[in-house]
Amino acid sequence: MLPVLFSDFIGLIFPQVCLACSESLARGEDHICTGCRAQLPYTDYHTLPEAHNPIARRFWGKVPVRYALSYLRFLRHGRVQHLLHQLKYQGQREVGQVLGRWFGAELTQQGLNQHFDLIVPVPLHPRKLAKRGFNQSDCFAEGLSTGLQVPWSSAALCRTENTDSQTRKNRAQRWHNVATVFTVADEAVVAGKHVLVVDDVLTTGATLEACVAVLLAAGCREVSIATIACAEQ
Rank of each mutant, 00 (worst) to 15 (best):
A130Y: 05
H52T: 11
F6V: 15
H125F: 03
G111I: 03
F9L: 15
K193C: 08
Y89D: 11
G205L: 01
R57H: 10
L84P: 05
A155D: 13
R168I: 03
L75Q: 13
T47N: 07
C36A: 08
R221V: 02
V98K: 05
L25I: 10
A226R: 06
V195Y: 06
G104S: 04
H82G: 06
N177G: 02
D44S: 04
G78Q: 03
G78N: 07
N162D: 15
K62G: 00
H46G: 00
W152F: 13
E50W: 01
T183P: 02
S22V: 12
R79V: 12
R132P: 10
C211R: 00
R174T: 09
A179C: 10
T227D: 09
L157Y: 03
A51N: 15
S224P: 01
S24L: 12
V201K: 10
G104N: 05
T146D: 08
L5N: 08
R221D: 14
Y67N: 03
H115M: 05
Y45S: 01
A105N: 13
L83W: 03
S22Q: 15
E232V: 12
E209M: 02
S137C: 12
F116L: 06
E232A: 07
L148M: 10
P49E: 13
L196P: 11
Q110T: 11
P41D: 12
Y42V: 06
L83A: 04
T34Q: 11
G205H: 02
F134A: 06
D30M: 10
L99Q: 06
Q86I: 02
